[in-house]
Design a protein around this nucleic acid. Sequence first.
DNA 1: CAAAAAATGATGTACGTACCTCATTTTTCT
DNA 2: AGAAAAATGAGGTACGTACATCATTTTTTG
Lengths: 341, 341
Amino acid sequence: MIVPTTKDLAEAAGVSLATVDRVLNDRPNVSQKTRDKVQAAIEQIGFVRNLAAVNLLRNKPYRFRFILPKRGDLYLKELIQQVEHANKSLRSDMTFADVEQLDMGDPHLVANYISSIDPSDLDGLAIMAPESPPVRDAISRLNERGVHIVQFLSAQENLEQLDFVGVNNYAAGATAAKIVGKFSGSKSGSIMIISETMLSSDSIERRHGFDAVINARFENLRPLPSLETYGEVSRAKRIIGNQLEHCDDIVGVYIMSSEARIPIEVICEKLNLNDITVVVHERTPFSEAALKNDQIDAIIAQNPGHAVRSALRILRARSEAREPNSAQESIRIEILLDENL
Amino acid sequence: MIVPTTKDLAEAAGVSLATVDRVLNDRPNVSQKTRDKVQAAIEQIGFVRNLAAVNLLRNKPYRFRFILPKRGDLYLKELIQQVEHANKSLRSDMTFADVEQLDMGDPHLVANYISSIDPSDLDGLAIMAPESPPVRDAISRLNERGVHIVQFLSAQENLEQLDFVGVNNYAAGATAAKIVGKFSGSKSGSIMIISETMLSSDSIERRHGFDAVINARFENLRPLPSLETYGEVSRAKRIIGNQLEHCDDIVGVYIMSSEARIPIEVICEKLNLNDITVVVHERTPFSEAALKNDQIDAIIAQNPGHAVRSALRILRARSEAREPNSAQESIRIEILLDENL
DNA sequence: CAAAAAATGATGTACGTACCTCATTTTTCT
DNA sequence: AGAAAAATGAGGTACGTACATCATTTTTTG
């Protein structure tokens, strides 16, 4: 099988290699007639640029960075590992990725960090940061200075023109609700809902999606107000204990944050999780074990490896002025049960 | 940022380019001492082969073929489209893929086709064919003649040494059972189970997984004997109608085959699907619509795009004598509900 | 119709690696 | 010590494309 090269293309079009080059790379001083002729020859012989040759010629290392939170538990760890792994396996592709962890509690610090990035040091940035105007503006400015941006797992408002990698959180919450609802059978009662914080738009959207489905389809269930742990064990103990005192008809628990360990461990002390339906987010060693020993019933997950690779593919495509293959890049809301782990 | 080349490596190791080449490509006549020296330099400067250069040099088109069934409905169509799409988008990578559809009812025809393949025409084959000794042997022989093989979505017995792309069907059946069981709440009754044929190991494994979970966890439910449609509408009508006459306590339906349209349409005529739990396999325009209008409750899916791309990545890796990235290549058992579609 | 402008051709270099040949040095064996 | 074998070096070619320069032809313009 012979794959046509630019040489073959030149021959087929009846022009010189130089002219083919002019057409292929949109250089000036080519008549429309010649352009058409070459274009026709491209179709006819099925010419496609050899990517390997182009890349070799470009031979430019692509440097990408993930900005992730400084605080976090197992899911964060997994994300970081995935970035490191991708960095290793993509080196032969001239793609380099690293991680910078920032204190997301301080939006100005984050914004300052983003602003301080030198576009000549970095080709692209994948940012996972809570919504905040200073951060959003810093992202915008950096993008205008030529650094490609992917909003990673959590989006900023009004930055729809930038690529986003992650799930629709409204749908994720709705999915959790469907499972809690269906798995609860005909039982009536309350659903405990726990989040690290309700300040992030992720949590808000998940809550909206959750409530929408419960209210529409499961009138026997009553979602309780969101409890915010702030990631602290002592606080989690207090607020969860508090709610359990006032509420003795809990039939389900939904943990909205990506880190389920603290809430689950706290609830375990007071409640028998085997009898109630528990849904959490994100697959981690902890949630996996909890699924296996029946403490929880389902995990709503977005695969961290996929997310990282997808972000890198998008950044790479943007850096080469290609369109990302959007069909391949959507991240699914995975439902994990004991059986399909 | 500078990416080290073989030249840099030669310098760092204090040897000539020729020696570096000998070490990198495992050529003879290099002392162990030198090998170690170069190896150490590789680690030290972090040398990685430039894939683009290697590919350019190889500059060999990789030709892969998918063998798929001739008969099938929407899922098959989707698979074929995915192969065509991949073929287009991978041309710039020198990867070519096409589809050959065979009558899977005739194992000898399939075996003959496989045997007739000329290894100089083809680098790899992705095969989706029902288990059968002649087919298995033909695959084995073709593989020995140097054609890389991927067992695609359905595996042959005793060919574990060959790559497999697809889900664990026992787990898929178990997952379906868990959903049927949980979604049925406290109801008691029978579960109708429909397959195109029970001759394929896929169906058998799914059935085993299904029964295992139902028997272990849902004693209120009774799985009925498998109904085989052979993909025929008239037969489906007859056997399903027959079962409905003798059984009036159906609370769930599990359709094991990848094509749900015929069974669902037939059942619809006799039963109100809104009241019972229905689980089917594979996302198609039909099953998607059925999910949206509540005819079915869940789809157990293996993403056809992922499957096709994964098979091609594996074949490509094998053709280049690389190990496939197994972490990336496992196909998930996806659970699709109305909410996470 | 000549001069200017536009279009096209001819040719060379570079990217990083693999593979080849031949010359030279070092080691091993007798 | 001397011959044979092994190890290493030096240098070239090729892959397909992008980009550059300069020469030549064709078209446009005044």
